[in-house]
Design a protein around this nucleic acid. Structure first.
Length: 654
DNA sequence: ATAATAACGAGA
DNA sequence: CTCGTTATTATC
C-alpha cells in the first residue's frame, strides 16, 4: 500500500480498530447539520482522531469535515466511503465540540457555522513550528484589589479553588478593570486551571494584555484579535489548544478559545454591542460564556461599569451573584455628577455660547483646566444625529428654553431640544425670523474647533473614528472623543462633559436608555475621584439619575422590569425571521412552534424583504430554536429558493 | 454539485 | 412490457 499520494480504491483497507469516523461536513445547508460516517483507511489510522480536520467526498465533491469520534461499528445502513485525507492536528477538543453543538442549537444555527467562528483557518507553517515548552506552574495569587467589593474576596478564592462561582460585576468608578481582571486570571492559573477573557475592542485588549503581562510575566497568555495575520492568529490559537498557554484574551471570537480545564470565563463591558457576532448564528459573546460556564462548571465574571438587563437577569434568577462596591467606596472614588437640565443657561462667554456650551459645563471645564487636569468631552459620532439650522442663513436652531441644539428624530417629527427634550413647535430663526429648518451634521471635528475657541489657549485633542487615542498625558487639555473612543488619562480626567445625551436618548430604540447610561458611565469612570461630570440632559431622566447616584444595578433592575412588562428579552426569547415575504411565510407556516409562541408581524424591513417576530416565554426558548431549525432544515432539504435569516433576541427590536 | 432512483411516456 | 428520458431526493 502506498502511504503518499492517491491510494487506489482497490488497495484501501479499513483501520484495524475503530474503523468508522463520524464526521461533520462543512456545507452550509441546515438539513446536513448532522454526523456522516466514513471509513478510516489504515493509512490514516494515526492521523484521524476526534477533532481532526479531514477531507471527504460528499455527494460527489471533496469538502472539509471535522471528526467527532472514532467508532467500531456504523449506524449507517448503506455503504461507507473512505476518508480522503486528514489535515493537520485535531482542532476540536471534547469541550469545544460540546460548546459548538450547544451554541448551534441555542441560536438555531449549524455546527460548522460555529466552528468557522471558533476555529481559525489552518496555517501549516505555524502548525509545524516547534512549540515552546509549557510555562511552569503559576505561583499562588499575590495581593489583589477585590477587597472593596462585597463578596470580592470570596469570588477570587472560589476561582482559585475551581468552584463554579458566577458573578455580575459592576466595577466602581475609576476602577482599574484590566488589573482586577488580571487578578482573576491569576487566581484561575494559580489553581492549575485556564481562563478566557473577552473584551469589546482592540484598545481594551491592549490594556488587558499589558496588565496580564505585568501580573503573570511574559508567555503566560495569548491575545486573539481580528487584526492578526492568519499565521500569527493560528499560532496563538494553537498555543492555547496545545496547552502551552492557559489564558486567552481577545475580542468576541475568543469566547470559543480551546482552553483546557477552564477555571474562569470573563467578559468586560458586557453590554457593548461589539459582543454581538455579526455572522450566523449571531450569538452574543456574553451569552456564549454563560452557556460555556453552565456546560463546564467554570467560574464566570460578567463585568462592566454599567450593567445590561441581560446581566441583571442572571442575578435576578439567582444564577449569578452581585459583585458591587459598597456605597462608601463609590462615594470615595466616584465623580460628582451634575446635569445641565438643572442649570440650562448658556455660557455667557461669547465663544462658549458659540460652542453651544451650557454655563455649568463651561465653568466646570475651565476650573479643571486651571487645576492642570485634562477634560474629557464626549460628543456624538459624526453624522450620528443631524442638528438643525435655519434653511436661509444656516443659523443653528436652538431651544428657546435652554439654548440647546434642536434635532429631529424622524422625517416629519417635531424637532426637539437635544439637551432638555422640549419640543420646538414654533421655532423662529433669531437672526432672520425664518421658520424653516434643515439638517446639518455636527460631528466631533466641528465640536473640537468650537471648543478650542471657547477655551483660548487650551490644547485640544480628538479621538474617534479611525484616529483613536489610547491615552493622554495628565496635563491640561480638552479631549474630544466619540463614545467608545475615550482615551485613558494619566491620573484621570479632572472633569468630563457628556454632550451627546439627547442624541442618544432620543433614538427610538428599546435599548436607548441602557446604551446611553453605559456610554456615560464608561466616560465618567475615567474621571479622577471627586472630579466633575456634567451631563447634557435633564436630571429628571432615569438614566441621568442612575449616573448621578452611580447606580448601575438600580438602572439594570428597572430596565429588566420594563422588559418584563413589555415581554421583551431577556424576559422572553424572540426570533426575528427576515427575508423575502414568501420565504418568511413559508418558514413560519411549516414550523412546529411551541404552543406558547406568539407571531408578531410581519412588517416590511427592506425593499423586497419583510421581518416577522416570534416570541416565547424564556423557558420555551430551546423549543423555539429547535422548531425554527427543523423548519429551515425542511426548507433547505426541499431546495426552497430564498434563504431566510433568523436572529435570536436581536438588539434592534424596532 | 452529483449520483442514485423514482416516475413517466412512447413505442413495441 | 421495455427503454430512454426527466424529476426527485439523498448526500455516509
Amino acid at each position: 500500500m502506498t502511504t503518499r499520494g492517491k491510494t487506489s480504491a482497490a488497495t484501501k483497507v479499513p483501520a484495524a480498530v475503530l474503523p468508522v469516523a463520524s464526521v461533520m461536513v462543512d456545507v452550509p445547508l441546515p438539513h446536513l447539520d448532522r454526523p456522516f460516517e466514513y471509513l478510516v483507511p489504515a493509512s490514516l489510522d494515526d492521523a484521524v482522531r476526534p477533532g481532526t480536520r479531514v477531507r471527504v467526498r460528499f455527494a460527489g465533491r471533496l469538502v472539509d469535515g471535522f471528526v467527532l469520534q472514532r467508532r467500531d461499528v456504523s449506524d449507517h445502513a448503506g455503504k461507507l466511503a473512505y476518508l480522503e485525507r486528514a489535515v493537520g492536528e485535531p482542532v476540536l477538543t471534547p469541550e469545544t465540540t460540546t460548546l459548538f453543538r450547544a451554541v448551534a442549537d441555542r441560536w438555531a444555527g449549524s455546527f460548522v457555522d460555529v466552528v468557522r467562528l471558533g476555529v481559525p483557518p489552518r496555517h501549516a507553517v505555524a502548525e509545524s513550528q516547534v512549540a515552546p515548552a509549557a510555562a511552569p506552574p503559576v505561583d499562588a495569587a499575590a495581593a489583589h484589589g477585590w477587597g472593596s467589593y462585597r463578596a470580592g474576596e470570596s469570588f477570587l478564592a472560589a476561582v482559585a479553588e475551581g468552584r463554579p462561582a458566577r458573578a455580575v460585576w459592576s466595577a466602581a468608578p475609576g476602577e482599574d478593570w484590566p488589573q482586577r481582571t488580571a487578578e482573576g486570571v491569576h487566581a484561575a492559573l494559580a489553581g492549575g486551571r485556564g481562563a478566557v477573557v473577552v473584551v469589546p475592542d482592540a484598545r481594551d485588549l491592549a490594556r488587558l494584555d499589558l496588565a496580564l503581562t505585568s501580573r503573570l510575566g511574559p508567555g503566560r497568555h495569548v491575545a486573539l484579535s481580528a487584526d492578526l495575520g492568519p499565521a500569527e492568529r493560528y499560532r496563538r490559537w494553537l498555543a492555547a489548544k496545545r496547552g502551552t498557554v492557559k489564558a486567552v484574551i481577545g475580542t468576541r471570537a475568543a469566547a470559543y478559545a480551546p482552553v483546557q480545564a477552564l477555571g474562569l470565563l470573563a467578559i468586560w463591558d458586557e453590554g457593548d454591542d461589539l459582543h454581538d457576532e455579526p455572522r450566523a448564528p449571531y450569538a452574543n459573546a456574553r451569552d456564549v460564556l454563560v452557556l460555556r460556564s453552565a456546560l463546564t462548571g467554570a467560574a464566570l465574571l460578567v463585568g462592566g461599569f454599567a450593567r445590561s438587563a441581560e446581566a441583571q437577569a442572571l442575578v435576578a434568577a439567582g444564577w449569578a451573584h452581585d459583585l458591587v462596591a459598597g456605597r462608601e467606596t463609590v462615594r470615595h472614588v466616584g465623580p460628582r455628577v451634575g446635569a445641565t437640565g438643572d442649570d440650562a443657561e448658556l455660557a455667557r462667554d461669547p465663544a462658549a455660547a458659540a460652542a453651544r456650551l451650557p454655563s455649568l459645563a463651561w465653568r466646570t471645564a475651565k476650573a479643571a483646566l486651571s487645576e492642570g487636569a485634562p477634560v474629557l468631552v464626549q460628543v456624538p459620532r459624526r453624522g450620528y444625529v443631524p442638528s438643525l439650522a435655519c434653511v436661509r442663513d444656516r443659523t443653528p436652531a436652538r431651544c428657546s428654553a435652554c439654548a440647546g441644539p434642536l434635532a429631529a428624530s424622524g422625517q416629519n417629527a417635531t424637532p426637539a431640544c437635544r439637551w432638555c427634550g422640549r419640543p420646538a413647535a414654533d421655532w423662529a430663526c433669531p437672526s432672520c425670523g425664518g421658520h424653516r429648518m434643515r439638517a446639518v451634521v455636527v460631528g466631533a471635528g466641528r465640536t473640537a474647533e468650537e471648543l478650542g475657541r471657547a477655551f483660548p489657549g487650551a490644547t485640544v485633542r480628538t479621538s474617534g473614528g479611525d484616529r483613536v487615542l489610547a491615552t493622554v498625558p495628565g496635563e491640561p487639555a480638552l479631549v474630544v472623543a466619540t463614545p467608545g473612543a475615550e482615551p485613558v488619562a494619566e491620573g484621570g480626567y479632572g472633569a468630563a462633559l457628556l454632550l451627546d445625551g439627547w442624541a442618544l436618548l432620543s433614538r427610538a430604540d428599546l435599548r436607548a436608555g441602557e446604551e446611553t447610561l453605559r456610554r456615560w458611565m464608561n466616560a465618567a469612570a475615567l474621571v479622577r475621584p471627586h472630579g466633575r461630570v456634567i451631563v447634557g440632559a435633564d436630571a429628571s431622566i432615569p438614566a441621568v439619575q442612575a449616573l448621578i447616584r452611580w447606580d448601575p444595578v438600580g438602572a439594570a433592575t428597572r430596565e429588566l422590569g420594563e422588559r418584563d412588562t413589555l415581554d421583551f428579552p431577556p424576559a422572553s426569547r424572540m426570533a426575528a425571521v427576515s427575508g423575502p415575504p414568501a420565504a418568511v411565510g413559508d418558514l413560519v407556516r411549516s414550523a412546529d412552534l411551541p404552543p406558547s409562541a406568539e407571531v408578531i408581524g410581519p412588517v416590511p424591513s427592506g425593499p423586497e424583504t419583510e421581518r416577522l417576530l416570534l416570541r416565547v416565554p424564556r423557558a420555551d426558548g430551546a423549543a423555539l430554536a429547535a422548531a425554527v431549525k427543523v423548519a429551515s432544515s425542511g426548507r433547505s432539504a426541499r431546495k426552497a429558493a430564498d434563504a431566510v435569516r433568523v436572529v435570536f433576541d436581536p438588539r434592534e427590536l424596532i
